[in-house]
Design a protein around this nucleic acid. Structure first.
Length: 213
DNA sequence: AGTAGGATAATCT
DNA sequence: GATTATCCTACTG
């Protein structure tokens, strides 16, 4: 049967396809992501706009082979490889052509914790603490077992390997904080990092390293 | 508790 | 050839 896409009959995900990536980011907090036997409750995300105003966005300079899915419909997974060893995952948001996305930065493992621990054991054999299992974008992605093969996955399709699930508990607006995004080279003044206040799984703020003057 | 340095490769200029 | 939406380890205090 036809997959229910964002909007139309699927009102609960309507916020994903709106034009406002900030409110999409807020609404994703508290939602769950499930993949390969592990489920995570999102506690920290970052919004990235598309072509134009946001120099930190991978889509800022237009369409390339890497960012192609960002230009498609909302509710699709954008995965990228960085720093020679890490995968990070985003939820594409906004109308087709907008190319905005929300980076999933941290979460709390709520199911499949043994699997997550196994994936988050370092080469030296050190097992992560539960708090750190999905604290940080590459850690979150690693805990879920998500890699480049999941690029373009339909997150709202229940038969997909990677799925997005609605909030189980409400997340009041008053518990949501925001501030500058982490580690970005441009747009450091845009406060598009959102997190749930008081969550231990939120990655610590690190001022970006100064490049050159 | 805080920071410095290394690992390691796709992507884009 | 430079840059990168990072993580881990080891060191200092």
């Amino acid at each position: 049967m036809a997959v229910s896409k964002v909007g139309r009959s699927n009102d609960k995900w309507r916020f994903l396809s709106g034009t406002d990536v900030e409110s999409a980011a807020r609404s994703l907090l508290g939602c769950r992501v499930s993949a390969y036997g592990v489920t995570v409750r999102l506690t920290e995300v970052e919004a990235y706009s598309g072509v134009g105003d946001d120099p930190a966005s991978h889509a800022h300079r237009g369409r390339t082979p890497r960012n192609t899915v960002m230009f498609g419909p909302a509710g699709v997974l954008y995965v990228y490889f960085t720093y020679g060893m890490h995968w990070c995952m985003n939820v594409v948001t906004g109308p087709v052509g907008r190319a905005s996305a929300v980076l999933l930065r941290a979460g709390e493992v709520v199911d499949g914790i043994d699997t997550a621990r196994a994936r988050r054991t370092s080469r030296a054999g050190v097992v992560s603490t539960d708090r750190d299992l999905a604290r940080g974008p590459a850690r979150l992605t690693m805990a879920l077992g998500v890699t480049g093969v999941d690029y373009g996955a339909e997150l709202l399709d229940a038969s997909s390997a990677v799925t997005l699930l609605p909030r189980v508990e409400a997340v009041p607006d008053s518990s949501i904080r925001n501030g500058p995004r982490v580690g970005v080279a441009g747009g450091a003044d845009i406060p598009w990092r959102y997190w749930i206040d008081g969550e231990r799984s939120v990655s610590p703020y690190r001022p970006r390293v100064l490049r050159k003057q």
